[in-house]
Simulated assay, not measured.
Amino acid sequence: MSTVKERLIEATFHEVFTTGYSAASLSNILNRAEVKKGAMYHYFPSKKDMVLAMIDEKLEQRVEKRWKPVIDADGNLIDVLISIIQDTKGFNLTEGCPLGNLLQESLDQDEDFANILNSILDKWKEIFTKTLQKAKEKNQINKNINIVQCATFLIASIEGAILLSKKSNDNKDFEDCMIQLTNYLNSLRK
């Protein structure tokens, strides 16, 4: 059985992911978590603090769970990256990316949100940078590739493709973008 704090974090994730931070209803969060407001205040002084905790726990975990195993993968790292981006079931293409959604909504509105969201983006970029560095060391990609620029491009491509699919409500946009991203990744090979 989950704790009150865990239920609040999970309910906050679902509410913010489906409605956005600004429209997120504290009442809906409390109802979903089956928690009274007084109990919430025992853990979080405000909705903002609850959302920040949710970002720290849930969104960072999502990025690490999806992408960090690539670094430790056996075999060709480009093949591993391609297999992940081609797995459309692994992405929520109708509601978007929780991280991307919050970045669009909150990054410029609040310094605390900006700091934590940028920190997660930096960790994601670091994962891709380490993956590409390892691919270089394994002689799987060209040595002249700027891996930091490439990592940034990969994140922008994935997030942009998810956004396009969410906007059009059509997986084809994502799939088309991933075909082109696959072509790009294949062009890095040695």
Rank of each mutant, 00 (worst) to 15 (best):
I116D: 01
T19H: 14
C177V: 06
W124S: 08
M178R: 03
S83Y: 03
L99T: 12
A151K: 08
T152G: 09
I155L: 10
I141L: 08
T12A: 15
F91C: 05
I82F: 04
F44P: 02
G75A: 01
L30F: 14
N169C: 04
S168G: 08
T3G: 07
V51W: 10
F153S: 05
L102V: 14
D112N: 10
N76V: 00
I162L: 05
A39P: 05
D49P: 01
G90Y: 13
H14F: 15
P69S: 01
N186M: 09
E159I: 14
F91K: 05
K68C: 00
T12N: 02
L93P: 00
S46C: 08
N186Y: 02
N186S: 01
K48R: 13
M54W: 11
D56P: 03
Q149F: 15
K172E: 08
D173Q: 09
L185N: 05
L188P: 02
N118G: 13
V80C: 00
G100A: 12
T12K: 06
D87E: 04
L26C: 07
V35F: 14
K167I: 15
Y21S: 06
Q86P: 00
I71V: 15
Y21M: 04
Y41F: 15
K123Q: 09
N139A: 14
I120F: 11
F128Q: 02
E64H: 11
I147A: 13
L117P: 07
Q109I: 05
K136Q: 13
E111W: 04
G38W: 01
N183M: 10
I158T: 11
R32D: 09
K65W: 01
I120N: 09
I145A: 11
D108V: 12
T3V: 08
K58C: 15
L26I: 15
E34K: 11
E175A: 13
A33G: 11
K58A: 14
L154D: 05
K190H: 13
G96M: 03
M54I: 12
S46A: 06
K134T: 15
V63I: 15
K5D: 00
G160L: 03
Y21G: 05
I141S: 09
S187M: 09
